[in-house]
Design a protein around this nucleic acid. Structure first.
Length: 578
RNA sequence: GCCCUUGUAGCUCAGUUGGCAGAGCACAUCCAUGGUAAGGAUGAGGUCAUCGGUUCGAUUCCGAUCGAGGGCUCCA
């Protein structure tokens, strides 16, 4: 009989607990659920466990599995359960949190665990080659940093050996594409601990990518009815008190600096500044919708342990925009943002895109009348449907100020990344008292939506690096072509060709060092340069270039001018192919 | 911030069971007439993260500090 993979994972976690308790007498067990790619179990151990100790645990688990012991389900009363687990403080706490009535306990061999189940019938239903212990990590009891730190052992587990191996292979591939690794190898960016963690330095090649990306981003925004703003990096406490950030987002903001006896804060968000621009005048319904975008650099406090390459940083540039419109326009505006977002993602080469709709959080912390939330959510849902997007609901996952849609894209090795977020805001228009004059001459409150399509330029760069493994499409490649002379005799011709390409606006250079041609090709390949133009006697005499493509293809020899035309065509089309 | 791991040349990493430190790549100089993924030689480069302790002697052992990596939602 076969069981759902979650059941197998959960049963394996019990087997691991049995093994750990046996190998570490006195270990207290906490919880051990199935997770996306396996399972974990939290322990309070009498002595620390090291990664080196994991093989021994694995071995013991395999022994238990091969012993073919049944999983027995036992029903007990709360009092009985308390007695059974009298030596397990964490289990006792869990038992206290349960409703009165029947409690289930699962036993396999000598090991007994408080558990809702279900489980496999017997360890015979578990496969010794479908799991692998991954790592030990710290985790707070119940995720609460005020509670004790437990030792968590993570494991991968799948229904078949093939799936486990495929997963391990994906992880290996992910490691090769790690944005921090590629950032170094391709000389794109760096971070400097001595100068401040989580702050990104863009090198010349990263800068090329960014400039091309941002130019495209601005063009597309103008084409799609946006105006582009620039706003300050700091603002007086009045601004943040008005926006409410000092109330609900203070822990994400840096300490203020004093200027002329006033407190100024570095901005963690751009919206209050956009609100100020809106408030600068009286607005008619005829002006709406207003779509205001900004590549706005913000600084947010992230705890040191959470910083990670380009993916989580303390200073970053959001591709932010705020849309201010009438209630009647909101549905079309949301649909438009979604369409625009999909257009951007598809241009960048993401094909598999999924939406997540987050609704009103539970409790009374949320602002805005329930019917506003309902209307907003309805327009989000309609927009997603209109685009034919698959979506999932995230009940209660909205911010306190409004519901949202997040878009996640799937990358080349199957991982999902959240890029776009589209969020209603019922809070700030109220706080800043935004109004417009409607057709009937009455002042009314507009709707406001925040949106970021790429999220932040830094994070997007990280995601895109991992998606493309650094092999950027031609329009974003920091260096589009290199000219490689076969030998020193052809250096002049190579320089001439490179000059022609540069003059035509291509990002190109000649490799004129005294390395051998083979070494230059290898370097260019490693740098993921799209085109290598090899020139020797034949090419010089005929006035052509031999084109080697990054993927190993060899194009027919062509004059440099023809190569320029070809590249221009690909850039113009934002082609993903070379 | 907390738990585990970790910190040796610009990069990737050896190594020293305590006796003044090594390789490859990159860099510099020289040699090399070379056709699609590394030609050769020589050289320069490190207060072995920082501070303190133990010791005749510490990069190595111990402690602290700073940084980095993995984790801290997944509910019996």
């Amino acid at each position: 009989m076969s069981f759902p993979v979650e059941t197998v994972r959960h049963s394996l976690s019990h087997v691991m607990a049995e093994a750990v308790v046996k190998l570490y007498p006195g270990a207290k067990v906490a919880i051990g659920p199935a997770i996306d790619d396996g399972f974990y179990y939290d322990f309070d151990l009498p002595s620390p466990i090291q990664p080196d100790d994991l093989p021994a645990v694995e071995k013991e688990m395999r022994r238990i599995i091969s012993a073919n012991v049944p999983f027995k389900r036992v029903e007990v009363s709360k009092a009985e359960a308390r007695d059974l687990f009298k030596d397990e403080p964490y289990k006792l706490e869990l038992i206290d949190g349960l409703d009165d009535g029947t409690i289930t306990v699962y036993e396999q061999g000598a090991f007994r665990d408080l558990c809702r189940g279900p489980h496999v019938d017997s360890t015979r239903d578990l496969r010794p080659d479908c799991f692998k212990l991954r790592a030990v990590a710290g985790a707070y009891w119940r995720g609460d940093e005020k509670r004790p730190m437990l030792t968590r052992i993570y494991a991968y587990a799948f229904a078949s050996k093939a799936e486990l191996e495929a997963h391990l292979k994906m992880l290996e591939e992910a490691e090769k594409r790690d944005n921090r690794k590629l950032g170094k190898e391709l000389d794109l960016f760096s971070t400097h601990e001595e100068a401040g963690a989580g702050l990104v330095y863009w090198h010349p090649k990263g800068g090329r990518f960014r400039v091309e990306l941002e130019n495209w981003w601005r063009d597309e925004h103008y084409k799609n009815g946006y105006e582009i703003l620039f706003t300050p990096h700091i603002g007086k406490s009045w601004l943040w008190e008005t926006s409410g950030h000092l109330g609900f987002y203070k822990e994400g903001m840096y300490s203020p600096m004093e200027i002329d006896e006033d407190d100024y804060y570095i901005k963690p968000m751009n919206c209050p500044f956009h609100m100020m621009i809106y408030k600068n005048g009286v607005h008619s319904y005829r002006e709406l919708p207003m779509r205001w975008a900004e590549l706005g650099t913000v600084y947010r406090y992230e705890r040191s342990g959470t910083l990670h390459g380009l993916m989580r940083v303390r200073g970053f540039t959001q591709d932010d925009a705020h849309i201010i419109c009438t209630p009647e326009q909101i549905e079309d505006e949301i649909a438009e943002v979604l369409r625009f977002s999909l257009h951007m993602h598809k241009t960048l080469g993401f094909k598999d895109i999924k939406a997540y709709l987050a609704t009103r959080p539970a409790g009374d912390g949320a602002v805005g009348a329930p019917e506003m939330w309902d209307k907003a959510l309805e327009s989000l849902r309609k927009a997603v449907d209109a685009q034919g997007l698959a979506y999932e609901m995230d009940e209660g996952g909205g911010a306190f100020y409004g519901p949202k849609i997040d878009l996640k894209v799937k990358d080349a090795i199957g991982r999902e990344w959240q890029l776009t977020t589209i969020q209603f805001d019922f809070n700030e228009p109220e706080r800043f008292d935004l109004t417009y004059v409607d057709a009937d001459g009455q002042k009314k409150r507009p709707y406001m939506v925040h949106r970021a399509l790429l999220g932040s330029i830094e994070r997007f760069f990280g995601v895109y690096l991992e998606h493309t493994a650094g092999a950027f499409p031609i329009w974003l490649a920091p260096e589009q072509a290199v000219v490689i002379p076969v030998g020193p005799d052809f250096a002049d011709y190579a320089a001439e060709v490179a000059a022609e390409l540069k003059k035509a606006g291509l990002r190109a250079s000649a490799m004129l060092s005294d390395e051998r041609m083979n070494a230059k090709i290898r370097d260019a390949q490693k740098q993921k340069v799209p085109y290598m133009l090899v020139v020797g006697a034949k090419e010089r005499d005929e006035g052509v270039v031999a084109v080697r493509v990054r993927d190993g293809r060899q194009l027919p020899a062509m004059p440099a001018s023809e190569f320029v035309g070809m590249v221009r065509g690909l850039v113009e089309a934002r082609s993903l192919e070379l």
